[in-house]
Amino acid sequence: MVVALGVAAYRVMKWAEEPVVSEQVHPPPKIVTIPDRSTFFQVATLLEHEGLIKSRSAFVLLGRSQSADRRIRAGEYELTAAMAPAEILGKLLSGQVVLHPITIPEGLTMVQIASLMEQHEVADGADFLRLARDGSFIASLGLKLDSLEGYLYPDTYKFPKGVRSRDVIATMVEHFRQAYRPELQARAGDLRMTQHEVVTLASVIEKETGADAERAEISAVFHNRLRKHIPLQSDPTVIYGLTGFDGNIRKKDLSSPSPYNTYRVVGLPPGPIASPGLRAIEAALYPSNSRALYFVSRNDGTHQFSSTLSEHNQAVERYQKRPFRRSALPRT
């Protein structure tokens, strides 16, 4: 009798250790969310309810054999009924959670990045912004800055839902460090530019044009103006310093006392106005040999460059006839 019961128990355990269905059935994957601080019994109950294991009792015994209680990592998991319980347990113990891709385009401000993170349910927007302005946290990343504007590198990332904002930010800053490679740092030294100046200039270039072919030319204009102590007169910097910008720059905006008003302030603004991509960073460090001091939009995504004010005024007349259109760099 005892032998028979043992054999029966063995068969039951072998049955419970098998997948719910065969791989040949190709069951659709399920996204299962394991809440934080779940007990192993609660996890087993959830898996049984989702039809991913045959027996929660057998799964609990399997977990005990591996001291799995309280070691399950919370998060989203992609599981199928064709997975053996041991395989499911392995995923849960190793924390192979679902990663959600999120693309941060070039030229976004950290406020826009925080909003995007929240929209994708990756991180809390308010907490993200708080940390991006927290001096102590920024210092822990090895940076001496008032904020991380410009240093949240635009790229495609993969994060689990509910990831801590500090981990997201640390990852983005690390991507910036990898992009700002040693040869770029050396070039900045040759130009006698600090890292912050490079990122600041790159952010302005990023906001001025999306055309790769003219980034170096835009950069040359700004380098020429900086060298001649001519105000940059960049609309994007003015916009960055405005509160409640409605999409239209007015004459009074060009007289605002903001330190980002490069119509009044000579030199670079006090910091980046957005997150520049690698091409903008490279352009900031490798301007073309152009002697241009002006550029005006052709209204097709590109610009007309001029070396003299007379040429620039002619370009303005040609491309900006309607009064509501303004040149990117107006008359000085």
Rank of each mutant, 00 (worst) to 15 (best):
T194N: 08
G162K: 09
P236K: 00
K321E: 09
L89E: 02
V7M: 09
S140C: 01
Y157D: 05
A280Q: 04
L52V: 10
R215S: 03
L148A: 02
T109D: 00
D235A: 01
P259D: 08
I34V: 15
V7A: 11
V122Y: 02
A179G: 09
A220N: 06
G142H: 09
P323A: 08
G241D: 06
Y260K: 03
V221Y: 12
F128Q: 08
E50Q: 12
L285V: 04
S327T: 09
A4D: 08
K228W: 04
S307Q: 15
A114I: 07
E121K: 10
L285N: 09
A68C: 03
W15G: 00
K158A: 13
E149R: 10
V168C: 00
T39N: 11
Q304W: 07
I273E: 05
E214K: 13
G95E: 00
Y157H: 06
H26M: 13
R71G: 04
Y77W: 08
A114R: 08
E48D: 08
Q320M: 07
G189I: 06
E106F: 04
A328V: 07
E87D: 14
T332H: 07
Y294L: 10
S67N: 14
A74E: 15
L46Q: 12
R164Y: 05
V199Q: 10
L52G: 12
A82N: 04
K14F: 10
L226M: 15
A213N: 11
P28F: 08
S67K: 15
S258Q: 00
K144M: 10
V221Q: 05
Y319C: 00
E317L: 15
Y263A: 00
T171L: 03
Y286L: 01
I72G: 02
S327N: 08
I239K: 03
D69S: 12
V21K: 05
I88R: 08
L92P: 00
V163R: 08
E206T: 02
T308Q: 13
A202R: 05
H120L: 03
I249F: 06
H26N: 14
Q42Y: 03
G244I: 04
E317D: 13
I239L: 01
N261R: 07
D146G: 14
